[in-house]
């Protein structure tokens, strides 16, 4: 055992010289900047405030979800159900609003979707010790189905103030910043504080790094996992609500395949699927990175189909660069 640790140390301990340190600190944001500069040569419409505020607004939904996903991934888990949660949240929001005309009740019910799903995930993964892939996979199927069972159609006509949530811009320093972007940064900052500056975050890292060691140090691992998955579910619902506000309607298929982009954002942002590593602002950067690539491809008039191929290649590249970083570091 001791020799194994020694051997591991041998190829993890490298010189930490300053260019690498800065590169490590920037993480994916370094590549966001690099590619933004490269892309600006490809299209004259790319590098300007308006376009970037759109990229960020589009990324905000994924980023809010990726914030929760990052907690899950750091703890060594995965949550496939978030896309379905968004769909189901959207359907519940629409149906309750249509049937009661009470937006507050609708919002509460919509939030409850994510929280209940999260609790179920947490119970299965934490207390039943089921592999999270399977547990959340089961709930993923369930959520997507329930959404369509509830209503197969799109529902709109929300109150004006609710629609503003996703569409308004607020002037900050003479720039009009979309509200969802502000919300995204608020959520990211709050959870970054939770992750890096509070006991809760420390324990998530501990569980991801050495679950048994954390247990021996007195961390209640099942309870912690319950909390993590619940938060993740709640954030997914929250993102779903903002998405409904932005598109001014609810639709039960809205979250289809979202979980994949969200997990990809987290991993691109430096989270390791083995657990124990991850950053909130990295995940935000991951979401921005993906949306930025889709944006430039749109601007260049690349076929939507071709966009998928290119996005796939970039996901692999970004993860490979992370792997390379952690292998060297």
């Amino acid at each position: 055992m001791a020799e194994a640790i020694e051997a591991r140390k041998a190829h993890t301990d490298g010189p930490a010289v300053w260019p690498w340190k800065i590169y490590d600190a920037c993480g994916i944001w370094f590549w966001v900047v690099v590619f933004a500069l490269v892309f600006s040569r490809l299209s004259p419409y790319f590098l300007n405030y308006r376009n970037f505020s759109n990229i960020f607004r589009q990324a905000s939904i994924f980023a809010i979800m990726a914030t929760g996903m990052t907690l899950v991934v750091i703890s060594g888990g995965i949550d496939l159900s978030v896309g379905s949660v968004v769909s189901f949240t959207s359907a519940v929001l629409g149906v309750v609003w249509r049937d009661t005309e009470n937006i507050y009740l609708a919002l509460a019910a919509a939030m409850a979707v994510g929280i209940v799903t999260g609790i179920a995930n947490g119970l299965l993964a934490g207390y039943c010790r089921m592999p999270p892939f399977i547990a959340t996979f089961g709930l993923m199927s369930a959520g997507a189905g329930f959404a369509f069972a509830l209503t197969p159609s799109s529902i709109g006509d929300f109150p004006a103030w609710f629609e503003k949530l996703g569409n308004d811009r607020i002037r900050i320093l003479s720039h009009a910043v979309p509200v969802p972007v502000i919300i995204m940064f608020a959520v990211a900052v709050v959870f970054m504080l939770f992750l890096d500056a509070r006991r809760f975050g420390l324990r998530i890292f501990a569980v991801g790094g050495n679950e048994n060691g954390a247990r021996m140090a007195g961390v209640n691992v099942p309870k912690l996992k319950l909390a993590i998955y619940t938060i993740n579910g709640a954030l997914a619902s929250f993102a779903g609500i903002i998405l409904c506000s932005r598109i001014r309607s609810s639709y039960p298929g809205i979250g289809l395949d979202m979980e994949m982009d969200v997990i990809a954002s987290s991993v691109i942002g430096g989270a390791s699927l083995v657990g124990g590593e991850g950053r909130i602002f990295g995940a935000v950067g991951g979401a921005v990175f993906i949306c930025m690539i889709q944006n430039i491809l749109n601007l260049m008039g690349v076929y939507p189909f071709m966009q998928k191929i290119v996005t796939g290649v970039f996901i692999v590249l970004a993860v490979f660069m992370n792997e390379f970083r952690s292998r060297r570091a």
């Binding site: 994949m260 997990i263 189909f305 998928k308 996005t311 290649v313 996901i315 993860v319 792997e323």
Partner: peptide
């Protein structure tokens, strides 16, 4: 690469 990510990318790319 983790199989999840590698095949996720392939899922997007092959569909495209």
């Amino acid at each position: 690469l983790p199989p999840f990510i590698a095949t996720l990318a392939m899922m997007t790319a092959a569909r495209g």
